[in-house]
Amino acid sequence: MNKSSFHPDDFFKKACAFEASLILVAALLGWIANINPFADLNFSESAIACGVIGTIPLFLMFLLLEQIQAEPVIKIKNMLFQTLGPSLHRYHWTDLFILAAIAGLSEELLFRGVIQPWMESSWGIPAALIGSNIIFGLVHAVTPLYAVLAALVGIYLSLSLDYGGDRNLLIPIIIHGLYDFLAFVALMRAYRASLLTGSGQ
């Protein structure tokens, strides 16, 4: 894939609109399943702290993958670099923060706020943990390895829901959004550096 799948000039608006539309999908599925996606969303200082701290292992994993030279990992890195790099490098970090925040909120409302509890009500917690995150992995399946990694990240996010004993959707929302932001910034910086050295696509 040699060119971006997104037009760089309108990437931000389209990406934000797409991610925000998932909130409507969550609301619709929640209405069908009689589940309020916002029911377990509780604001507290401890939840914010857990979310920030919980982002660290995921970002360390991201940095570790950056050092791995195995072909499947290189394929993922090249794909992200070539598809997102030309778009992300045009924006300020505040734009990337907004996009990441919307993605964290919308995807967590959908997967951890509706799909997982919906499955829990029918199949129980262990099956819902696995089943909901297989779906999470599949919708991120840009490559087979990426789908597996996304599913594992999804399991991590699902487990963070009940950290401390009380279910709180704010924790995975913060982890997801903050991780996406850090990954976006890292990708943006790498692409800008490639332009300076003449190696950008």
Rank of each mutant, 00 (worst) to 15 (best):
N2C: 08
F6Q: 13
H7I: 07
H7E: 14
D9L: 11
K13W: 15
A17K: 13
A17N: 09
F18G: 08
L22P: 14
I23M: 08
L28Q: 02
W31M: 04
I32P: 10
A33K: 06
A33E: 12
N34P: 12
P37D: 03
F38H: 06
M61R: 06
I68K: 14
I68V: 15
I68F: 13
Q69C: 09
I76A: 11
Q82A: 02
L84R: 08
L84E: 15
G85A: 01
S87E: 04
R90F: 11
H92Q: 14
W93G: 00
D95T: 09
D95M: 08
L96N: 05
A103C: 05
S106Q: 09
E108S: 01
L110C: 02
F111I: 14
G113H: 10
V114Q: 05
W118F: 08
M119C: 00
S122E: 06
W123F: 12
W123I: 04
G124K: 04
L129I: 05
G131W: 07
N133M: 04
N133R: 00
G137P: 07
L138Y: 10
A141S: 10
Y146Q: 07
A151C: 04
G154H: 00
G154E: 02
I155A: 00
Y156F: 06
L159F: 11
S160G: 02
S160T: 09
Y163E: 05
D166V: 02
R167N: 10
N168T: 11
I175W: 12
Y179Q: 06
D180G: 00
F184Y: 14
A186L: 10
L187D: 15
T197V: 13
